[in-house]
């Protein structure tokens, strides 16, 4: 790992210049908890690191035109503890809190985590359910893409070589909805999920009919997966225990887990169904309580 160049610009223009200068050799350094581990394993051997910590525009968490704005350099811990996040999207605070340990959450950033694109991560699952949008900026301008289009494959994203992930925009949770993130952890509390599910259930004004349902799963495919068929099965229906069970059953055909030390593919497939049902039950209970 010798002869690596380092740049630490204090604005985005400086980052774009550095990206141009170092080309494909460059990697952006946010918190480093993902990148440094990849470098230790020699899976990534950058010729240059571009530190983002001095760029004010990438920091902080705020409300902006109704949406939550998560700066790319906001830490997991900031999102977890932010009153603004808890008020607008409690699901997000709850999910970020389940990432690794406090020590890692103090350093790991929102943008760095998403760019890392490990399909076992927690935040993408909640962000898909919340219909978040990722903002990518280059010298030539800015584009916004839905989070589910951001992840293209195992550790692969839609970020172009000249782009920087600058922020994530999250619409607030609907008032009549309950949402939950369930992370199945049969080994240790700080592990990656064996199966992860986020569900949101929104009730219609009658308080009885399911107006909207959204479900996403992590750790059971090469990217976070949206369970559109399961969600569609609930829309406009009465969410009876039987209806939830049938909807959850739909994810069996969707998931594509691998055998590893967190469980066999067959076991994970079974658990995806179980945890989807539980997530739907808990999201519905929260919607009924008005607990969100």
């Amino acid at each position: 790992m010798s002869d690596v160049q380092y740049a630490e610009p204090d604005n985005l223009a400086g980052v774009f210049d550095a990206l141009e200068r170092y080309g494909e050799e460059a990697r952006l350094l946010a918190g480093g908890t993902g990148l440094v581990n990849l470098m230790k394993q020699r899976l990534v051997q950058p010729g240059a690191l571009i530190g983002l910590r001095r760029i004010e525009a990438l920091r902080g968490v705020s409300r902006q035109d109704g949406a939550l704005r998560l700066g790319a350099m906001a830490t997991h811990r900031e999102v977890e503890t932010s009153e603004v996040v808890r008020a607008a999207a409690p699901l997000l605070a709850e999910t970020y809190r389940q990432v690794a340990t406090v020590r890692i959450r103090n350093v790991a950033t929102v943008g760095g985590g998403l760019a890392h694109a490990d399909p076992s991560q927690d935040p993408p699952v909640a962000l898909v359910v919340l219909r978040a949008r990722v903002v990518l900026t280059s010298k030539d301008g800015t584009r916004e893409i839905p989070i589910e289009e951001f992840f293209t494959d195992y550790y692969e994203t839609a970020i172009a070589p000249d782009e920087v992930l600058t922020q994530v925009l999250v619409p607030p949770q609907p008032a009549q909805a309950g949402a939950v993130y369930l992370k199945f952890l049969p080994r240790t509390a700080d592990d990656y999920a064996t199966v992860a599910v986020a569900a949101l259930v929104e009730l219609a004004a009658d308080g009885e009919t399911c107006r909207d349902a959204r479900i996403a799963l992590g750790a059971v495919g090469s990217t976070v997966l949206q369970a559109t068929a399961a969600a569609a099965a609930l829309r406009g229906q009465r969410p009876t225990p039987e209806a939830l069970r049938e909807a959850a059953e739909q994810v069996r055909a969707l998931v594509d887990p691998v055998d590893d030390y967190r469980g066999s593919a067959a076991y994970k497939r079974d658990m995806a169904v179980v945890f989807t049902r539980r997530a739907l039950e808990q999201a519905l209970a929260r919607a009924r309580d008005g607990a969100r």
Partner: peptide, 11 residues
């Protein structure tokens, strides 16, 4: 608190 094994000194 941070993991010093994951933090480059420059950071």
């Amino acid at each position: 608190m941070v993991s010093s094994c994951l933090m480059p000194g420059v950071a």
